[in-house]
Structure formats: C-alpha cells, structure tokens
C-alpha cells in the first residue's frame, strides 16, 4: 500500500529517478569514484563471462538488499543495523549461490569463494548505510540497481580487455559459445583456445601473458581512472 502511494506522488521514472540510475555509471561510479567493492571484483575479471555472471549477481543482491532494508528502515534499531543488514545481504547471497550452483555448476566452481564475498562487498553495505536507510523503497531500489550496474560496467570493461589481449577470445566458457578475436594459438594457452583461433583477424598476435596475471587488472583500473578523470575534471584528487 505504501508503495503505491509513493508512486502516485512521485513519477515512476522522473528526472531524479533516472539520475539515480545513471549517476553511478560515471560521475559517482562505485568502483572508480567511491572506491567501494574492489575487493571481490578483480579476481573474477579474467573471463568476460565470469565477470558477467558476477555483475548480474551483484545487481540482484544490491537492488533487493536496498529494497528490503528500505522497507524495514523504520523498524531497525540503529544499534543493531549492521547485523540486520548483513543478515539480509547474506540471505540474498545464499539465494544467488544456490541458484548458480543449480544452473551452471562449472561457473559456480570457477567463481568459488567470490560469490560468497558479495556479502562483504562494500558497495552493497555502503549504499545501504548511505542511501536506503534514509530513502523510500522505490528510490532505494533504483539506487541499488544503479550502483550494481556501475560496478558491473567497470568489471566488464576490465574483463573484455583482459580476455581479448590475454587469451585472444571473448566470452570463452559461456553457454553461447566463444568468439576468437585475435592471436594464433599459443602453446601455453592452448588449453583455453582449442580451435587455434582460425577465424580471427590478427593471427600474428601473440597472447600477452601479463593480462592473465592478477596484477594487470590493477593497471587497467588505474588507467580507467586516469581516462575518466581526464575528461571529468571535477573528480581530480587535489591533495
């Protein structure tokens, strides 16, 4: 009942609501501006499909945790709010984990502990603290979804760069099949690229082993921040 009343007073997709969704994509991006949620992210960006699954999971958890917290916000005593939030998040993450286990077991095995680590993903917690506890359910939901998408965007950019230059493929391991983009088959990588990338465009390219290492995601995210701050001067760190 309360929800319909809110919708009548405020437009469902007014300017403010749209801003809630698009702000986290650029000027208030959770990863590059708020520095939240890097923890559980960077280890899953070796393959685009893994990053995609992870992003969907985070969008789901973020959105619904915000919605539930916002619905309960007047009932939660402020001393125990951390525990309540953690229980909500942990419950949602358990749902995600069990459904992934049932739907796509190889990916579940691959992501291993990182699905569980969505619980401690600071984006979810941070948005609950900063936004959902003080705002109405619909807007909190949008804010949660927006921040999840902002996180997913960065994750997928990193994963695409790492997979193309590191393995020469795109979407390897997904149920939709993989694309061979660049490079001939590399001896050490041949277990990843079984088709020897025959249809690829730049077959002279040798896969860059650095891109498979975890350190490369740090460089890429550093460069993303550099690019973003070069055109969005407001974000530059003055100190």
């Amino acid at each position: 009942m309360a929800e319909t009343a809110v919708q009548e007073k405020e437009p469902l997709f007014g300017k403010k609501e749209r801003k809630l969704l698009t702000d986290p994509l650029d000027s208030n991006n959770p990863v590059t501006v708020q520095v939240l949620g890097i923890c559980s992210a960077l280890a899953v960006t070796t393959l685009t499909f893994k990053a995609l699954v992870m992003s969907v999971a985070v969008v789901f958890v973020c959105g619904f945790a915000a919605l539930i917290t916002s619905l309960l916000r007047n009932m939660i005593p402020s001393q125990v709010r951390m525990i309540v939030q953690l229980v909500i998040i942990a419950g949602l993450v358990t749902i995600v984990e069990l459904s992934l286990k049932a739907l796509n077991y190889p990916v579940y095995k691959d992501l291993s502990v990182f699905i569980g680590l969505i619980i401690t993903n600071c984006i979810v917690m941070g948005r609950l603290e900063a936004f959902s506890l003080a705002n109405k359910p619909w807007r909190s939901f949008l804010d949660g979804i927006g921040n999840g998408l902002g996180y997913g965007l960065i994750l997928i950019i990193i994963a695409v760069i790492r997979e193309i230059f590191g393995k020469g493929t795109l979407m390897a391991g997904s149920p939709f099949g993989q694309f061979n983009i660049i490079g001939a088959s590399n001896e050490t990588m041949s277990y990843m690229i079984n088709t020897a990338a025959e249809g690829s465009w730049f077959s002279w390219y040798t896969n860059n082993g650095l891109m498979v290492l975890p350190a490369s995601s740090m460089f890429i995210i550093g460069i993303i921040i550099w690019v973003q701050r070069s055109w969005n001067k407001e974000l530059v760190d003055i100190s």
Binding site: S217, M218, F219, I221, G222, I225, R229, V236, D237, S239
Partner: peptide
C-alpha cells in the same frame, strides 16, 4: 599527472 593523483596511482602501485 593530476588525473592520476591519489587513487589512480595507488592502483598502479598495487599492481
């Protein structure tokens, strides 16, 4: 470089 100061540099150092 100004755009890299602070956070961006911290990432690259960590890498």
């Amino acid at each position: 470089p100004p755009a890299l100061r602070g956070l961006g540099m911290a990432f690259i150092i960590t890498g």
